[in-house]
Amino acid sequence: MNIFRFAGDMTHLCSIVVLLLKIEATKSCAGVSLRTQELYAVVFVSRYLDLFFTFISVYNTVMKVFFITSSFCIIWYMRHHRIVSQTYDREQDTFRVAFLVVPCIFLALLVNHEFSMVEVLWTFSIYLESVAILPQLILLQRTFNVDTLTSNYVFLLGAYRALYILNWLYRYFTEPGYSQWIVWSSGTLQTAIYCDFFYYYVVSWRKNERLSLPS
């Protein structure tokens, strides 16, 4: 494993820890999209089915189990925790997830490496992950003045994607025969969505700064 891949995994892990700590410490999930969290749970469950039949390494297994349990933990907080669930922005978090899930199902059935249950589910999870952040980004744009921890979460997720691109480049040049088109194209789309968001984020941040200047 190269340094980019490891740093990417660690930023991904940190993003989830930051989100959980924010929810636990502030007893609030304001600005967090439950729809995105549910999509991530679907992504992790459909991708990590291989936990049952392939063993890659202890690291790999531990990380997969962490991603699955932490995503369900966040969903539990947002849906069932007595105090946290009341802070959920239900009226603002209205993105229609079917618009993301249905096209991903069709695409996974059409474009995959092998037409088998496990392989199609794996491909579906790759496609869905690339767009799963959209409800969160839209919510963040609607409720712009949320605490910085929510933006830190989104920022760390973006950093994880950027590091994974460096990891793919590194592996492409160092490992003969290393190639995975489905992962590369979805990952690039995912990073592009983040870049678009960061552009908007910086622009409105600067606008807010200018507005708050004393006259």
């Binding site: 891949r5 995994d9 991904h12 291989d50 392939t54 890659i56 390494s57 790999n60 990380m63 997969k64 991603f67 490496h113 092998e114 088998s116 392989e119 794996w122 994974y164 990891n167 592996r171 025969g177 290393y178 995975q180 992962v183």
Partner: peptide
Amino acid sequence: AADELVKDEL
């Protein structure tokens, strides 16, 4: 085929 794919990433 699927078994040629690198699936050690998360």
